[in-house]
Design a protein around this nucleic acid. Sequence first.
DNA 1: CTGACTGCAAACGTTTTGCACGGTA
DNA 2: TACCGTGCAAAACGTTTGCAGTCAG
Lengths: 133, 133
Amino acid sequence: MNNYVEILKSSGLKATLQRLTILELIDRDGHIKIDELYKKMNTTHPTLSLATIYKNILTMIDKSVVSEVPIMGDKSYFELKKRDHIHLICESCNSIEDRVMSSIDMELLKQSNQFILSHSQVNLYGTCSKCQS
Amino acid sequence: MNNYVEILKSSGLKATLQRLTILELIDRDGHIKIDELYKKMNTTHPTLSLATIYKNILTMIDKSVVSEVPIMGDKSYFELKKRDHIHLICESCNSIEDRVMSSIDMELLKQSNQFILSHSQVNLYGTCSKCQS
DNA sequence: CTGACTGCAAACGTTTTGCACGGTA
DNA sequence: TACCGTGCAAAACGTTTGCAGTCAG
């Protein structure tokens, strides 16, 4: 848990019990939606409010502690900020698996039968050529 | 416009004026959000209701005529279903550019300076190994 | 002619906000 | 102690629903 304290402090955020709890739950699940987070939280910390979760998710995204994983036909999931990776999203059981792989390996994945690919969604965020000038 | 009539009919949907209007506006913009769609629609077809847009977007996604583009920190955009492509999303002007490229070319993009990459989001939808059995 | 589709208005669920209180640093 | 963060309740917002009327095939 000390780990999260460091992360928060170095991001200029206070290490409150609420934030530590949120981070621990996100980490345990890997990827979690707000309502799932709230339900799990309610069992151990019944007083922690939904508004606090929303406020903290926003501020922690802003500070790059957490990142949003928007999903087709579903609410966004949230995960701890980590190095670039791919999400393998199973449309049958709704599981989300992280995979660290190079672009070239993606072709291999398509050809292998470990994960039957239905469709892909690649979004690259950055600055377009117009906005660079 | 005849093109859309064909697409709708071959998907088992009736080619109503409302659907044709929605498809034309999506196509014209490339990627559009529901509220933008409604605003533009309102100028030319003031009686077309928001509920109709929502219902139609859902059914047309279901029939693979349209697809959803979920975006970090924003509402989903919608586009016509087309062959696999990458989205270059400018965080400055919020433009979305389509780019058809192989996985290997992605590496080239990162190295080039045409689009300064801030972060990427790759979601692959399909069936995981567990759910295949 | 019939089932699919539309428009309206109400209902619903999710997210945001304002404010008084509480806790971290 | 000062300020950031929390909890509550209300408000705002986006989306869905039910139903009566309409239209495409």
